[in-house]
């Protein structure tokens, strides 16, 4: 006993960690780890998951042959909240909410542009900002072209229109969970 006590004193002088302190620290650290764990589990528990085909998950919008021809009116996909537009630069999936205050814009086929009914922001067919109070171009979703046989991703585009592959059977898939903010204009 006396030897132990002496050892303890010596240790204190050296300010190294003795067994009791070490166990206390380990205990506290494990408590901290538990708190972090609970936080992480709650986060994962509360975070929504999305199935294929519902808004927030990936959506197959069809094959290349199903797409609207270049320069034609965009197609509205209300359930997954996007407009599919095909311009000369390629195909885009635009999030259907105006970047200004969250109104839903519409396609004006006479003028050939998107116009927001609330405050009059206007956008090109590929989502580029024309005029109005909106701070940036339309938000778009990540879009991919998938090889129908192998399931390989042939092309994908994040912040610009995706050039279309020639094969008409290639599947076009949109990831509505990955929204890319439009470019801010000066």
């Amino acid at each position: 006993m006396t030897e132990n006590e002496k050892e303890g004193e010596v240790n204190e002088e050296k300010t190294s960690v003795n067994r009791r302190e070490f166990l206390n620290l380990a205990w506290l650290a494990s408590l901290g780890f538990l708190v972090v764990n609970i936080g992480g589990v709650s986060y994962l528990f509360a975070m929504p998951r999305f199935k294929e085909g519902e808004f927030g998950g990936t959506v197959t919008v069809g094959t290349v042959s199903d797409l609207p021809p270049v320069g034609s009116d965009p197609v509205n996909h209300p359930k997954v909240k996007l407009w599919l537009t095909n311009t000369e630069e390629g195909i885009s999936a635009l999030y259907k909410v105006c970047t200004h205050l969250g109104c839903l814009y519409n396609w004006n086929s006479q003028e050939g542009k998107f116009i927001c009914p609330c405050h009059g922001s206007q956008f090109e067919g590929d989502g580029d900002y024309i005029l109005g109070p909106a701070p940036r171009s339309l938000d778009r979703f990540v879009i991919e072209a998938i090889d129908p046989d192998t399931g390989e991703v042939l092309v994908s585009a994040t912040n610009e229109p995706m050039p279309l592959p020639d094969d008409p059977d290639v599947i076009i898939r949109v990831d509505t969970g990955k929204k890319v903010p439009g470019e801010t204009h000066a």
């Binding site: 986060y43 509360a46 975070m47 929504p48 999305f50 808004f55 927030g56 909240k81 509505t176 969970g177 929204k179």
Partner: peptide, 13 residues
């Protein structure tokens, strides 16, 4: 921001 929004709304909207 997007995570907070997902946690609050339980979906993108």
């Amino acid at each position: 921001g997007e995570q907070v929004n997902l946690l609050l709304r339980g979906a993108p909207d």
